[in-house]
Every structure is written in structure tokens, then in C-alpha cells.
Simulated scan of single mutants.
Amino acid sequence: MKARILTLCLALLAGCSGSWETDYSTGIENTVSQKWRVREVNVAIPDDLTTTETNSYAPNADVVWHEDPVGDRRVQVAEIVTDGVRRGARPLRGSKAVNLDVTLHEFHALTPLARAKAPSAVHNIAFSIQVVDARTGEPLTEPEFIRADLEAHVGEAAFEAFQQGETQKVRITRHLQQVTASWLGIGPDVRRSFSSAGR
């Protein structure tokens, strides 16, 4: 009976196969961003985003994070996003102090069950980002929607990655760093799409 349920769950997850992407429509010109120096990264998580501790293959929630000990998942996820974005903007050494205001739309990482048993999976991440003058609060850019999906390690690959220190947090933080640098025009263009099973 358990094997039959597992097979059904895997089939349903495989049925969620689709195309995922790291993408944004308008990046910042390097000649503009090089004039900036980021003072703060502010991450907002709207109250209407749902979260869950359910350990299923693809729980229906906007914020899913299990790698840290049980606690305030919103705070934990905000710290990851803040760290990734801040690292991506770190090379900027311009004279104009700016803040990066980030609004999270989705942060759906893997549950322990999906990490162990899923045939493939995706970290679904989406947020909006805007540059504002750190002194006046004046917007310097329009809010930019960024899709930052990332292939997840599952099964034996996940175990081996974990043993080498490549945790979900490490990989997602690095990915957000690369995406931010790309958007700011100070790193390689990382926009791409890929196919995988996912939410």
C-alpha cells in the first residue's frame, strides 16, 4: 500500500513537469549601477504569502523552507534573500548611496521528502526589486520582477552535495547573488530557462 501511494505521488509530481526560468525584462546598465553604493537591502514578505511545515512533495504554499531548525520561516527566508542580494551588489563602489528594496513573491524550496524521493525538483523563487536613493527614498528605478528558479539536488546527488557543504541555503544564496549581479549589470547574464518537475 505504501509503495502504491509513493508511486502515485511521484507520478503526480512528474505531471508537474514544466519550463522554469531565471529571467527579468530590464537590467540596469553598468554605466548607471557603477555610480551606486548599496547601503541597505530591505526584504519585505507580504502578509498574504502562505507558509507551511507540511513535509509533502509539493506543499501548496508560497514560502516553503525546511533546512533551518523549526522557527519563523519568513525571517529565515528573508535572511537568505537579503544575504544573496547584498553579496550580488557588493562590488558596487560608487559615490551615490542607494538601498535595494525587495518584495518576495515566492520562495518554495524543497521539503525533506521531495529532496529524498522526488525524481527531480525546482527551487521556485520570485521577487521584485527596486533601487531607491538611500538619503531621500526617491525611487531610481521601477520595481523589476525577477524570476530566479533553480534546479534542486535530489536523492543521492542531494546527499553528496550536502556532504560537500552544498546545502540548499548555500546554493540558493549563491544563485541570488549571481542573479542580482546580472540584473545590476556587474556580472554575467544568467537568464535562462530549463525543464524539470516542480511545483
Rank of each mutant, 00 (worst) to 15 (best):
V98A: 02
R39Y: 02
A11H: 06
T26H: 10
V41C: 02
K96W: 07
K96D: 15
G165A: 06
K35L: 05
V122W: 00
L92F: 07
A134T: 04
T111D: 05
T26C: 06
S33I: 12
T31P: 07
S193T: 15
K117A: 15
E67L: 05
S19C: 09
L100I: 13
S120R: 07
Q163G: 05
K35C: 11
T103I: 08
T136D: 07
P46L: 03
A61Q: 04
G137F: 08
P143V: 00
C9T: 11
R90Q: 15
A89V: 13
E142W: 03
A126W: 05
V43Q: 03
G165N: 12
E151G: 14
A116C: 10
V122M: 03
E156S: 12
V63E: 02
V70H: 09
L13W: 05
F145R: 14
D101Q: 14
V43D: 01
E40D: 15
G155L: 00
A11V: 10
S25L: 08
I80A: 03
W20Q: 07
T51P: 05
D149R: 02
P112Q: 04
G84V: 13
D68W: 06
N42R: 15
K169L: 05
Y57I: 09
G187W: 01
C16Q: 03
T167E: 06
L12N: 11
E151T: 14
R4I: 13
V170P: 08
L176C: 13
L110D: 01
Y24S: 07
A118K: 02
P188A: 09
R147Y: 09
V75C: 01
A158Q: 00
T22G: 05
L140M: 12
A114V: 05
G18W: 01
T136G: 07
A44I: 11
H123C: 11
T31A: 11
